[in-house]
Structure formats: structure tokens, C-alpha cells
Amino acid sequence: MTNLELYKKSFCETFEIQEDALKGLVYQGIPSWDSVGHMNLVATLEEAFDIMMDTDDVIDLSSYEKGIEILKDHYDIGF
């Protein structure tokens, strides 16, 4: 599985949504991406990519696209 596929899977499984809902998805844009969902997303991403996300990044993870940027820039994950 590529990193992008893993990233998408983390979102889809955490929020119980389909892949076509991912583009442009923002924090609190759907009911399941609330603060509790956010923590679950972070835990899933940490597990999937074997990283420990800094709290500043947890706070900054405000959209599907922003998450890719954070993983690329701060955790050396290639997409």
C-alpha cells in the first residue's frame, strides 16, 4: 500500500466515509470529524506511519490536505 493509500484509509476508516469525500475535507466539516474524531484520527495516523505527532501538529491538522503537508514536512513521509 502506498503512503497516500494508507493516509486515505486512515481518514476513511476513522470517519466512516468514502474516498470521494476526502478532497477539501476540513476539521468539523462532517459530524464524525469532531474533537473526539480528531484524536482518533491522530492515533490512527501515528499507528499507520509509526510516528509520534507533536501537539503543535495535532492542532494544525485542520484539513485532509494540511495533513499531507504536515506528514511530508515534519515526518519525512513521502507522498
Binding site: A43, E46, E47
Partner: peptide, 8 residues
């Protein structure tokens, strides 16, 4: 940080 590990 540890609660994130527990969350999983």
C-alpha cells in the same frame, strides 16, 4: 502523548 497510545 501517552493517552494517544491508549486511544489506539
Amino acid at each position: 502523548y501517552i493517552s494517544k497510545m491508549m486511544l489506539r
